[in-house]
Amino acid sequence: MLLKRILQFFLLYALFIGCLLLLKYSLQLSDYVIPGPVGMLQTLTTKYRSYGLATLNTMSIAVIGQVVSVILAFTLGIIGRQSTWLGSFIKVAAYNIQAYPIVALAPILFILLGDGFLTRLLIAAMICYFPLLLSVLGIMSKPVTDIEHFYRATGRMRWQLEVKIRTFENLNQLTTVIAGSATLAMAGTIVGEFIAANAGIGYTIRIALYQSDLAKILIALFFIGITIAIYQAMLELLGIAIRRAWTGK
């Protein structure tokens, strides 16, 4: 699966670069508008180390951000699943927070938390958590009556058991959503770095944009893409391992 993901990414990236080059040569555009293959290769050889490290830096924040958002989504999803006042309050609050564009909230975070690790982490988690929350809320709010009936009828139902049953019954959906949210976590971190950080690949892209250097941006996109492909494949493999261990299939 890992190899498949990497190959798929290489294919997509090659297609993307191919289209850009086709545009460049057919419209006779300069290297300023679209860099040539030599320029891209030169940028890759001079920048691979610093961009690779910047991407890993971003990735580490994205992973922590995703873990935080999974915990957050599960916590809110578990509390919000109940049709109580608190449950409905949490749902409304979660939807409202998502309604504010992150670029509007980012300066506030920047003032409160500075331009370091925490701001990046929070922005990554905020962008990543909402789709997760929607899935978790949906799953946790929907009773699995054919299993839960016995525990309710006999007075054995506890919230932990309820969560366990609903998680187990929707394991495929949950692992897919979590693996998919990796992309959002990475995108969130990059947005955070772009707006309010002094490190990471998002910050590097910002500098490249100031310098109007598309070659650097294309190389940054390459590193981002390959890292996401590997991370997502690893999450999918982890999901399969968890499913095997828990369901015995």
Partner: peptide
């Protein structure tokens, strides 16, 4: 009073015997 029906299921994360013993 308890009501049981034929559409009910036991959770799938461990063996039937384990579930029965727990309840």
């Amino acid at each position: 009073i308890l009501y049981s029906h034929n559409k009910e299921r036991l959770p799938g994360w461990s063996s039937v015997d384990h579930h029965l013993s727990k309840v």
